[in-house]
Simulated assay, not measured.
Amino acid sequence: MTMNSAVAEPRGTTREPVLSLKGVSKGFGAVRALTDINLDIYPGEVVAIVGDNGAGKSTLVKILAGVHPQDSGTISFDGVEVSIQTPTASRALGIATVFQDLALCDNLDVVSNLFLGREITRGPSLDEEEMEQRAWSLLRQLSAKIPSVRIAVASLSGGQRQTVAIARSLIGEPSVVILDEPTAALGVAQTAEVLNLVERLRERGLGVLLISHNMADVQAVADRVVVLRLGRNNGDFHVADVSYEEIISAITGATDNVVTRRASAHASAAPASPPESASAPSAAAHAAVAPSEGRLTEPLPDNSTGIDEEID
């Protein structure tokens, strides 16, 4: 079985991707971090990027965030080829990135963190009232559970801090939001809170790129799963059409295993002609499955024991 058997095709044929990567490669000296990566992100879609450690996920995020320029390949935004040389260029383009460390100032309150570097002023002074109103409006749109926008970020839970980081990314009205391991080290309730935020981002029509190791989270909110393995594309699946085992197989490269061999054996054993009459026993009736091998063995002899009769 190959990973091409469940490769995802765009279901909205009239839609154009808001962000598209074609043949993107990146190396660090002799190390090839990414090789010929292709990726499309559509408006109102959550695309999960999964892969083992060293698969190239972080490098891909940093290229889109403007931290590292790609060595080759093209990046298109709204159908126009672009160059993302700096984080400022990435934000100006409409790409917001929420890194795993969140980059929040613990000693500042929620409002100050949301508008840090983009403060609203009235003359020589900060317009605190306007920023507070906008902060509440944005948090309500995300159905966020924040007790007060004037509470210090240090007093918030992990899920609430992630909420503030995601809300801050929306200040500039982006078209694409990249979330790097948003549920890492969170509890069950906090994880559910963050996944609800991802749903709200999709409802707002944004393209969401979700980096995650948690397959349960991926299958809960993602529309498509893109697998990276050793810096290369190794699968692009619609979540509704792929199993957990197929995703893990693509991540690990274990496409030839007990599960896939058993599936192939059953497929090859399916009758290609009309079924035989009831009086004629079929070979499949005598076939035995060897659990340790995961495939069909030869039919047993007619003595039905599999043991040669002793010859006197």
Rank of each mutant, 00 (worst) to 15 (best):
E9H: 15
E9L: 12
G12W: 09
G12D: 15
T14K: 14
T14I: 10
L21E: 12
G23T: 07
K26P: 05
G29R: 03
R32C: 06
T35H: 06
D36C: 04
I37H: 01
L39F: 05
I41W: 04
E45F: 05
V50N: 01
D52A: 01
N53S: 01
K57V: 01
S58K: 01
L60S: 10
V61Y: 06
A65S: 13
P69I: 13
P69R: 14
D71L: 05
D71F: 02
S72F: 02
S76E: 14
F77N: 06
V82N: 07
T86W: 06
S90K: 08
S90D: 03
G94R: 02
I95L: 05
A96N: 02
A96K: 02
T97Y: 01
F99D: 04
A103I: 05
L104T: 10
L104M: 07
C105D: 10
C105Y: 06
C105T: 12
L108Q: 09
N113V: 11
L114I: 05
F115M: 04
G117V: 08
I120C: 10
T121Q: 13
T121A: 09
R122Q: 15
G123A: 06
S125Q: 14
D127W: 04
E129R: 13
E130F: 11
M131K: 01
E132Q: 10
Q133P: 07
A135D: 06
L138P: 09
L138R: 13
L139D: 11
L142A: 14
S143W: 11
A144E: 10
P147A: 06
P147E: 10
V149N: 09
R150P: 02
I151A: 14
A152E: 11
V153D: 06
A154F: 08
